[in-house]
Lab assay of single mutants.
Amino acid sequence: GATAVSEWTEYKTADGKTYYYNNRTLESTFEKPQELK
């Protein structure tokens, strides 16, 4: 079976905060997504 690849990509803001962006739902969040835990 195919492994589900996380759609979340980790980015940093200009002031160094980490956030996560989902390229399928176009959602962004500062909290670590469930799929990455």
Rank of each mutant, 00 (worst) to 15 (best):
L26G: 15
Q34V: 13
N23Q: 08
S28H: 10
N23A: 08
A4H: 14
K32H: 05
S6R: 08
E27W: 03
D15E: 10
A14G: 07
T9Q: 11
V5I: 12
Q34Y: 11
Y11T: 05
E10N: 02
R24E: 14
T9H: 09
Y21P: 01
E7T: 05
L36D: 08
P33Q: 02
K37T: 13
S6V: 10
R24F: 15
L26C: 08
T3V: 14
K17M: 10
E10L: 06
T25G: 01
G16I: 00
T13K: 03
R24D: 10
Y19T: 04
T18K: 07
K12T: 12
K37E: 14
E35K: 04
N23Y: 09
L36P: 04
S28A: 11
T18W: 05
A14M: 10
K37M: 15
W8R: 00
K32T: 08
T13S: 07
K12V: 14
E31G: 03
T18P: 08
Y20L: 01
Y19N: 02
Q34T: 12
T18I: 11
K17N: 08
A2F: 13
D15G: 07
A4K: 05
F30P: 05
A4T: 12
K37G: 15
K37N: 14
Y20H: 01
S6W: 09
K17Q: 10
T9M: 12
S6Y: 09
Y19Q: 04
A2P: 12
E27Y: 04
Y21K: 07
N22A: 00
T29D: 02
K17V: 11
Y21I: 11
E31P: 02
W8T: 00
L26P: 02
Y20G: 00
E10M: 09
A4Y: 07
E27M: 08
E35N: 09
K32A: 06
T3G: 14
G16P: 00
S28D: 03
E27G: 02
Y19P: 01
E7H: 07
Y20M: 01
P33F: 02
T18R: 04
Y11S: 06
E7V: 07
Q34E: 15
T13D: 12
Y19M: 08
Y20K: 00
E31N: 10
Y19V: 11
E7P: 05
K37S: 14
L36Q: 05
A2I: 13
V5L: 14
G1H: 14
K37F: 13
E35F: 06
L26V: 02
L36N: 07
F30S: 08
E31T: 11
K12F: 08
F30D: 07
T9A: 10
T9F: 10
K17R: 15
G16H: 02
A4F: 09
T25L: 03
N22E: 01
T29W: 04
W8F: 01
P33W: 02
N23E: 12
D15N: 07
L26R: 09
T29N: 03
L26W: 08
E7Q: 06
Y21F: 15
T25A: 01
V5Q: 12
Y21G: 02
P33C: 02
T3F: 09
L26T: 11
P33R: 01
P33V: 03
N22W: 01
A14T: 09
W8D: 00
Y19I: 11
Y11P: 00
G1E: 13
G1D: 13
R24Q: 15
Q34A: 14
E10K: 04
E10S: 06
L36T: 05
Y21V: 15
T18M: 06
F30A: 07
E10C: 03
E31R: 05
K12R: 11
E7S: 04
R24S: 14
K12W: 07
G16A: 01
K32W: 04
Q34S: 14
V5K: 06
A4M: 12
P33K: 01
K12N: 06
S6K: 09
F30H: 07
G16M: 02
T18Q: 04
T18H: 06
K17D: 08
T3H: 12
S28Q: 11
E31Q: 10
S6P: 12
T29I: 05
E7R: 03
N22G: 00
T29M: 06
E35H: 08
Y20A: 01
N22Q: 00
G1A: 15
L36K: 03
T25M: 00
P33H: 02
K17A: 07
S28R: 09
Q34F: 11
Y19W: 11
G16F: 02
K32M: 13
G1S: 13
G1L: 13
A2D: 13
T13I: 02
A14D: 10
L26Q: 15
L26I: 02
T18V: 12
Y11L: 15
A2R: 02
V5W: 12
E35V: 08
K17L: 13
Y19A: 09
K12Y: 09
A14L: 10
E27A: 05
A2M: 12
W8P: 00
T25Y: 02
T9V: 14
Y19S: 04
K17T: 11
Q34M: 10
G16R: 01
K32Y: 06
R24L: 15
T3C: 04
L36A: 04
P33T: 01
